[in-house]
């Protein structure tokens, strides 16, 4: 995994925010005016990891877990409260030119392309700003546009593009300077399945071709499964897990899903002795069964219930994550402070 000289290094990375707090009453407003109460939000708390050159890592966590704040620290937009980071050999928040030329940040919910002009104009602008030579610029646009099947669209105003095409154009603009490290924050947000697959394949291809390092957040598990052999899981600002995706299942979801089709419907109580009922609809039931007791429970189910069909599966990843976030030790993420 992470070698001697990582491309991305985070050590004890921590970011606290002070947020003013006010009660909604008139008295609260008055108090707020006279003696402001602050609340410290621990957005990121002591996060450490290393990513080797060329690695593709998924960064997972529910909304507000600290993913975006971490990405902003690694791209130099936010100073950490504490801790150390090194990206491509630079301290991000110094924002040196050489550093900025080696990285990119794509945010699925924000866009950098000029809305009323063809994407090509924004690309030319980026090429000039990043000092990409003219010939090289043309070569790269051709190559990337072909990988994204976007060639004909580059001369239409950005506002005329579909959401998927716009995201592809955003990616093209963000990768024109051929960054070594890609920070992708929800790059497939809101895209339909086809566009999602296209973006996913493009990221894979870009990583393969240029050996770029990728740190990617996504709420679509399909993205993570397809792209990231390794995942980081963050919850309430703390790193919960760092390792292979399969390992995550072993550790946080020692369950199997047992799907049953019955000959006739039964009440919920009938299934309680066998496992946790996830879904019950007519003759269809989905149960979560602890893995180490799977054989014994299945035998019992077959013996005692009117089973027509039975199948055993891995639980869906979304459910695993819901479980991870639920069982995670939720220490006090906030503390009060008065000034």
């Amino acid at each position: 995994m992470a070698g001697a000289s990582p491309m991305v290094l985070a050590e004890d990375l921590t970011r606290h925010y002070r947020v003013a707090r006010k009660e909604e009453t008139l008295l609260g407003t008055l108090r707020h005016f006279l003696r402001r109460q602050y609340q410290v939000v621990r957005a990121v708390e002591g996060v450490s990891f290393r990513i080797a050159p060329g690695e593709v890592v998924g960064f997972l966590g529910p909304n507000g877990a600290g993913k975006t704040t971490t990405l902003k620290m690694l791209t130099g937009l936010v100073h950490p409260t504490r801790g150390r980071a090194l990206v491509a050999g630079h301290v991000p928040w110094r924002r040196e030119k050489a550093f900025l030329k080696k990285i990119t940040l794509v945010m699925g919910n924000k866009q950098q392309l000029i809305w009323d002009l063809p994407a090509m104009d924004s690309l030319r602008l980026n090429a000039a700003i990043y000092e990409v030579p003219e010939g090289e610029f043309r070569k790269r646009v051709l190559e990337l546009a072909e990988m994204l099947s976007l060639t004909e669209r580059l001369h239409q105003p950005v506002r005329k593009l579909s959401l998927g095409e716009r995201m592809k154009a955003e990616l093209l603009a963000a990768l024109l300077h051929r960054p070594e490290v890609l920070f992708l924050d929800e790059p497939t947000l809101g895209l339909d399945v086809n566009a999602q697959v296209a973006v996913r394949e493009f990221i894979q291809e870009y990583n393969r071709r240029y050996g770029a390092t990728v740190l990617l957040t996504s709420h679509y598990m399909a993205d993570i499964v397809a792209l990231c052999p390794r995942v980081l899981v963050i919850h309430q600002g703390r790193l919960l897990y760092d390792g292979a995706l399969e390992g995550l299942l072993e550790r946080f979801a020692p369950y199997r899903e047992v799907g049953l089709t019955l000959r006739h419907p039964l009440p919920r109580e009938a299934f309680l002795p066998f496992g946790e009922v996830r879904e019950l609809e007519g003759r269809e039931v989905r149960l979560l069964v602890p893995r180490e007791r799977l054989t014994e429970r299945v035998a019992e189910i077959l013996k005692r219930l009117p089973v027509e069909d039975l199948e055993v599966k891995e639980p869906p990843l979304e459910e695993v994550f819901a479980r991870v976030y639920k069982v995670a030790p939720s220490g006090p993420a906030e503390s009060k402070e008065t000034r």
Binding site: K72, T75, G76, L77, K97, T104, K110, I129, Y130, E131
Partner: peptide, 17 residues
């Protein structure tokens, strides 16, 4: 609107942009 972040990611001071 938070667009300053994009400008900060570029190796060009927004002043000149």
């Amino acid at each position: 609107e938070g667009r300053l972040s994009f400008r900060l990611l570029r190796p060009l001071d927004p002043f000149f942009d």
